[in-house]
């Protein structure tokens, strides 16, 4: 299948094993430019492994990943920051390493975006987990990538920050950035995802809209409890 003109990323039959444990068993999907794709699944489903392969930090045992030009930004699940450096120093270091045209402007932009301007001089180690996560995300955005991979970006954020994050991410998608993020919060995925990729035990069980998944789970009527619908879906699929 040849990639469509609007395809930003194409994934074909990706497999990955850690010794005996098979973390991914032939996952295939496509992501279009400007699409918001949620990878959902329970703990240990293989979400981090999949995003890591898309980011190029590990190689798949089988299968291929093709990007249709542009940078791929990556925000790891665990904050990747220098805890002994200040917020500003971290941002500036990565802005310089990303060869941002104007590192200072990029730093100011991210400080405003994360709302951490008044803590710019504080060492990251003195920040709360949620605030560290904000900087972690900000660094992934510095390169202004064509495809942005976010591994559980909202974990540890307070509701206000969460809304801020998703508004920002939705804005990026509207501007043409392909955003692929993982979460096990089905409500968030239903709210902010155009599309869901359901992963369980390394298998892609479902690829489509939240409404289609509900129908597949046999749920009827108005959405009351998305999580219950999701668990019913998994049970029906034998997970």
């Amino acid at each position: 299948m040849a990639p469509k003109a609007t395809t930003a990323l194409q994934v074909d039959g990706v497999c990955k094993s850690y010794g005996e444990r098979r973390a991914l068993r032939g996952v295939s999907f496509e992501a279009a430019r400007g699409e918001l794709l949620a990878v959902v699944g329970p703990n240990g489903a293989g979400k981090t492994t999949l995003l890591g392969i898309l980011a190029g930090i590990r190689d798949p045992d089988q299968g291929s990943v093709r990007a249709n030009g542009g940078e791929i930004g990556w925000v790891p699940q665990q904050a990747a920051l220098y805890r002994r450096l200040t917020v500003e120093e971290n941002l500036r270091l990565f802005a310089r390493l990303e060869r941002a045209g104007d590192p200072d402007a990029a730093v100011e932009g991210m400080l405003a975006q994360t709302g951490l301007d008044e803590r710019r001089g504080d060492q990251v180690s003195t920040l709360s987990g949620g605030n560290q996560q904000r900087i972690n995300i900000a660094i992934g955005l510095l390169s202004e990538p064509a495809v942005l991979l976010l591994d559980e970006p909202s974990a540890g954020l307070d509701p206000g920050q969460r809304i801020r994050l998703w508004e920002f991410v939705a804005g990026l998608a509207e501007a043409g950035t392909t955003v692929i993020y993982s979460t096990h919060q089905i409500e968030e995925a239903s709210h902010y995802g155009d599309r869901l990729l359901v992963l369980a035990d390394g298998e892609a069980l479902f690829d489509g809209s939240f409404a289609a998944m509900r129908r597949a789970a046999g749920a009827r009527g108005a959405v009351k409890d998305p999580e219950a619908d999701f668990v019913r879906f998994l049970t029906k699929q034998g997970h």
Binding site: G52, A55, G56, I57, W74, P76, Q78, A79, A80, L81, Y82, R83, F94, L97, E98, I139
Partner: peptide
């Protein structure tokens, strides 16, 4: 330990 290795070696260095 800081998880920065993966971030750095993804094309930054």
């Amino acid at each position: 330990e800081e998880n920065t290795f993966a971030r750095l070696t993804r094309g930054l260095v």
